[in-house]
Design a protein around this nucleic acid. Structure first.
Lengths: 108, 108
DNA sequence: GTAAATTTGTCAATAATTGACAAGTTAAAA
DNA sequence: TTTTAACTTGTCAATTATTGACAAATTTAC
């Protein structure tokens, strides 16, 4: 599976035999705007990931991987970032975790 | 080297013996706001990456790696994304490139 | 102690995102 | 074909987020 997040939603929707209007209702948004999301002309709002997961009984962790993976990829593509960026990101996640752990230790 | 982007700027600045006011002037922003950036209380604006690069004669590509790596890491940390996210991001960058190539071929 | 450097708080101005609706096109069914 | 549902596109006011700017601390280095 490889697709933009919009394409991913569209596949989910059509595979499950829903119309834009039907899924839009579940996600509490306008069907016209859902159309734009599926066609990559609007962003899907982070806040609706939970609704999307429950609409199709998806694992929210898997969904986050798709969603944020898409976000990062779009940025990298737009700004022509070197692949090294992702390696550095991985290191920095570890760094943030270590910082946070220390803070937590101090605080409590 | 491992640091947030704010810490990274601070190191560059102090290593080069500049005050907040001096670097802020080069970046065309308020020194108070630069302080916040260095302390992770504000975002550094994408649009100033070029100015930052030339202020310290940095390779803009390396700088982008630091900058976007930091952005992605912060998101991942905030939303507790699985490391898998970065692998998916890498795949999706390839996908976007392939899509774009096809479009380019058709258009011209 | 004081002067420079830095930090923090605030807020109006600007910019970006969202929700909503109208008006269009496409597609499938009769 | 005509009709009807599905989808797409454009627009814009309203909401929300970001930025620039300045005042007022606080910290640091003589």
């Amino acid at each position: 599976m490889n697709a933009t997040f919009g394409e991913y939603i569209r596949k989910l929707r059509t595979d499950n035999g829903l119309t834009l209007t039907e899924l839009a209702a579940l996600l509490k948004l306008d069907s016209a705007n859902l159309s734009k999301i599926e066609n990559g002309k609007r962003e899907f709002d982070e806040k609706r990931l939970d609704k999307l997961a429950s609409a199709f009984s998806l694992d929210i962790e898997k969904l986050k991987v798709e969603y944020f993976g898409d976000q990062f990829a779009k940025k990298m593509f737009e700004f022509k970032c070197s692949p090294e960026t992702l390696i550095v990101a991985e290191e920095k996640v570890k760094y943030l975790k270590s910082i946070n752990m220390v803070q937590t230790e101090i605080k409590f």
